[in-house]
Nucleic acid binder design. Structure first.
Lengths: 197, 197
DNA sequence: GTAGCCAGTTAACGGTGTTAAATCGACTGA
DNA sequence: TCAGTCGATTTAACACCGTTAACTGGCTAC
């Protein structure tokens, strides 16, 4: 059964190669330029092979997106271990959100269907997104122990503010410097958190 | 020269028919389903005719997007005539932003390259966007007469908050009811404006 | 040796944006 | 009346897309 195991491992490897290639092309040329044939070329296979690993391009994109939310989740957990103060936690998580979007913009784009990235599978069906939402909601709750609906609402406000600034600063990248945007982001998130309690 | 005039008018008509058709398809099937051939079919012409009116699909989308910003601009001007109080003005403009996104979601999507809408022409190059930005910035200034940079920053915050809530509520449409989102939007924008001064 | 399986290929279908070439009708000048 | 031109419009083509069916070549089991 060793062969089967190795086969499985190499299968997992190829699978992640495909996702990695998709991300690399997206980073260089944008998601609208990502095609099954280009991916196949890069991993030195013919196009139909990709369908051995992903049912469709849509599913491939949805898995990449999921990977993004899982990455965020782990980063958030890292923060939870580092800090105890809820305010500090929420602030640090806000900063991670920003850094993530800066360092892996193609990831952020596919997660929110921005700029040519289009995955028709609804994002709110992603378990990873739910998990991320729960983590942040829990922090807010430890902050302000209110009813479920209030927490949901405060989370929505936090998320909107963060996502709004990130996506607009992506949109205006050449019009407003990222450094300037980042400064505004930090101060605005800080103030939002301070005024939360 | 009457013939030439009529020709020009009918040319303008066909041009706007093309844009209208693009929007109609986008509304029904999403921007990823909008193709030159589908548009041509709908206006009962062959595909190359579309290129007599728009240099490329990219340009067509950018004109639709511009139409969106121009619509907003006119709505904003309507508000300026209706109200004198800066707080009231900004609040009403916030509400228009929401209603616009609700009533013409395909427009909002092409303006911000959301969900399959992809126009590679940078949005900040649009005069209409600049004009809209100036209008809102002026209101904020009449509110809080600070330096240009501060106003720019406050405008960015207002825009981010509004766009963030709108785009996330589009994303979560089936997970969080629009009515609920709208209520949060109204209250959040109101509080933001109140705390501005 | 040969039958069967399996990884991987080629070929195909209907679609895309875009452009060059061909067509067709109306109008003009001789 | 006929040749010629012009302009509007179409057809045909190119290179690409996502996706699927059919095929190929090599290995294994009997």
């Amino acid at each position: 059964m060793e062969i089967l195991e190795r086969k499985l491992r190499s299968r997992e490897q190829t699978r992640s190669d495909i996702m990695q290639t998709a991300k690399t092309i997206a980073r260089r040329e944008g998601w609208q330029a990502v095609s099954i044939r280009k991916i196949a070329d890069a991993i030195e296979y013919s196009a139909p092979i990709v369908y051995e690993y992903f049912d469709s391009k849509d599913v491939l994109l949805s898995e990449v997106r999921n990977e993004g939310f899982l990455f965020l989740k782990e980063e958030y957990n890292r923060i939870l271990k580092l800090y105890r103060d809820p305010e500090k936690r929420l602030y640090e998580i806000s900063l991670i959100q920003w850094d993530f979007a800066r360092q892996q913009p193609e990831m952020y784009r596919v997660m929110y269907n921005l700029d040519g990235a289009f995955c028709s599978i609804p994002v709110y069906q992603s378990d990873a997104l739910q998990s991320v939402s729960d983590t942040v909601s829990a922090i807010i709750f430890s902050f302000i122990p209110k009813a479920k609906e209030s927490i949901r609402r405060l989370y929505f406000e936090w998320w909107s503010l963060s996502h709004g600034m990130i996506s607009l600063s992506m949109l205006l990248e050449d019009d407003q410097s990222p450094e300037q945007s980042e400064q505004i982001y930090r101060e605005t998130m800080r103030r939002f958190i301070r005024e939360l309690k």
